[in-house]
């Protein structure tokens, strides 16, 4: 499907493919047969008005919704060709591979160093020196190293909001995921810190497949390669970001991006 949108020389590998994906909160259906393909090593933005199901959609990719008893998903999500909704898929490994960053920064109640080291200690057997090396690497990767290198033993909660969010990104990438899911990562953060995180995401694009839910249309146009527009639980339009923002094919999309509702 996506292939048709791209110029021929840009042959992208599909990393995530949702097929006929529906979602229910108890009896209430929130997503209706979503089909979406997300290319590897690109940033895909998911936009749409509040309550359209974009966060819900994202939360299926790492099966975090399973924490809640009355929520269930139907359909398929293929990651590297494997349906991750299959019961046999190991959810711990899935969540390592598919890292998630939340709306509000969620530093763990431990030191900056341990925050980053925690996830990798869970999943890897490492020597002490390796851990220190990788923590530094992850913090550099999240462009946070220079700011926190002197307070690695300080509490992660003591950092500023933007730093906390980048700490969460560092923590996530330290676990060596393939995919980063970001659920409105900058909505609780001031504009300067937001810009920093956007730059960071652009630099991470080479290493990860990134899906970002955002309310902020400028943000979507600034950083994403592809954009999917959600409306009332359905994917109305999915295209390259340039086309969505300059020449949307659907009327609803046009109304939304020009700010007529939402």
């Amino acid at each position: 499907m996506l292939d048709t949108l791209l110029s021929p020389k840009e042959k992208l590998k599909i990393k995530i493919a949702a097929r006929d994906l529906s979602f229910f909160y108890g009896d209430h259906q929130a997503l209706f047969a979503n089909n979406l393909e997300i290319p590897e090593n690109r940033i895909t933005a998911v936009i749409g008005p509040s309550g359209c199901g974009k966060s819900t959609h994202l939360r299926i990719y790492n099966r975090i919704f399973e924490l809640y008893r009355d929520q269930r998903a139907e359909g398929e999500v293929l990651i590297d060709g494997v349906n991750i909704l299959d019961r046999n898929v190991d959810v711990l490994e899935l969540r390592r591979k598919v890292g998630m960053i939340f709306q509000r920064p969620t530093p763990f109640p431990m030191s900056v160093f341990d925050n980053v080291a925690y996830g990798m200690r869970l999943h890897f057997k490492l020597r002490k020196s390796e851990i220190a090396e990788r923590v530094e690497g992850a913090l550099r990767g999240a462009s946070l190293w220079e700011e926190v290198k002197d307070k690695l033993n300080g509490s992660g909660i003591a950092l500023s909001g933007g730093q906390q969010q980048r700490l969460c990104i560092a923590r996530t990438i330290a676990a060596e995921p393939d995919i980063l899911l970001l659920d409105e990562p900058t909505s609780a953060i001031d504009p300067v810190a937001t810009l920093k995180i956007e730059e960071l995401l652009l630099s991470l694009r080479k290493r990860f497949t990134i899906v970002i839910v955002t309310h902020n249309m400028q943000q979507a146009s600034r950083i994403s390669d592809f954009t999917a527009f959600f409306y009332k639980g359905r994917i109305v339009e999915h295209d390259t970001t340039t086309r969505i923002f300059t020449n949307p094919s659907n009327k609803k999309t046009e109304e939304y991006i020009t700010g007529r509702f939402g």
């Binding site: 190991d90 711990l92 869970l122 999943h123 890897f124 057997k125 490492l126 390796e130 290493r207």
Partner: peptide
């Protein structure tokens, strides 16, 4: 490519156990 500097995995089995 990334897997080259990836090292020994901790088996999920014991954590689940």
């Amino acid at each position: 490519m990334r897997d080259t500097h990836c090292c020994v995995r901790r088996p999920v089995f014991f954590r689940k156990l």
